[in-house]
Amino acid sequence: MQDLELWSMDELCDHAFDIFEELAAENLSAADYGLYQQQYEQRGYVDLVIPGPEWVELIMQDLEPELHYEAQIGLTGLDGEADRVLARILLSREKHDALCHAQWRGD
C-alpha cells in the first residue's frame, strides 16, 4: 500500500460530497433533494465507515478495510443525531481507482 497515492480522510469526504452533489438531483426524490438543498449548510454531514458485507455481495468484489470506505451522506437531526441518510457511496482511498458505487435513499 505504500506505493499507492491515497486520499486523506478529509479529501475522501470532499470527494464523496462532490460525487453526491453531481448525482443527487437525478437519484433522490424531489422532496429529499429539495430538503437537502435547503438545509445542507446547517445540517449536512458525511461519515466514513467500514463497508459492510452487503457491498461485497452487491459488487461481487472483495474489499480491503484499509482502502475502501462507505461514505454516508445525509442531514442531521436537531439533536445532532443523523436522521436521514440520503446516500451511501462506496469509494476507494486510492486516487487512481475509479471504484464508486452508490445506494440512494429510496433504492
Rank of each mutant, 00 (worst) to 15 (best):
V46M: 07
L58P: 05
T76H: 03
C13A: 14
V56H: 03
A24M: 09
G77F: 04
L48P: 07
F20C: 02
F17I: 12
L86P: 12
A30W: 03
D79R: 05
E5N: 11
I50N: 13
D10T: 06
I59H: 11
A30D: 07
Q39G: 10
D107A: 05
G77K: 09
Q72H: 02
L58E: 14
M9F: 13
G74E: 05
P53C: 06
D47Q: 11
H15F: 08
R84G: 09
A31F: 12
Q42G: 12
Y45T: 13
G77H: 10
E64I: 08
Q39I: 06
Q38H: 10
H68F: 03
E22M: 10
L6V: 03
L78Y: 10
D79W: 06
A82N: 04
P65I: 10
A24P: 08
P65E: 09
R93K: 15
M1Q: 11
Q39D: 12
Q103G: 07
V85W: 01
E70D: 14
D83S: 14
I19W: 07
A16M: 06
E57V: 01
E41C: 09
S29P: 03
G77E: 13
V49G: 00
A82F: 00
W55H: 02
P51W: 06
A25F: 12
F20T: 00
I59K: 10
E26G: 07
A24N: 09
E41I: 09
V46Q: 09
G80Q: 03
L12R: 01
H101V: 14
V85R: 02
W7P: 02
Q2C: 07
A102M: 13
L75M: 02
L35K: 13
I89H: 03
L35H: 12
Q103P: 05
Y69V: 08
L90Y: 00
A30G: 06
L28P: 06
D83A: 09
Y69Q: 14
G80C: 04
L6H: 08
D97G: 05
N27M: 04
G77T: 05
C13V: 13
Q38A: 15
G74P: 00
D83G: 04
G52W: 01
A16W: 06
S29T: 15
Y33K: 08
V46R: 11
E21Y: 11
L99F: 02
I89L: 12
H68A: 01
F17W: 15
E94P: 08
D97R: 03
F20E: 00
P53R: 06
E5D: 05
G34M: 06
E11K: 05
G106Q: 08
R105F: 13
Y40S: 11
Y45H: 06
I59G: 12
E64N: 14
L90Q: 02
E21D: 15
A87D: 11
G44W: 06
W55C: 00
M1G: 15
H96M: 12
P65D: 13
D32M: 07
E57F: 02
R105G: 01
Q39N: 14
G77R: 07
E11C: 03
L99N: 05
P65W: 08
Y40D: 11
F17N: 11
R88Q: 15
E11S: 11
C13M: 13
S92R: 01
W104F: 03
Q42P: 07
G74R: 05
A102D: 07
E57L: 04
R93E: 12
E54K: 06
A71L: 04
V46E: 11
I89M: 07
Y36E: 12
D107R: 03
L12Y: 01
F17M: 14
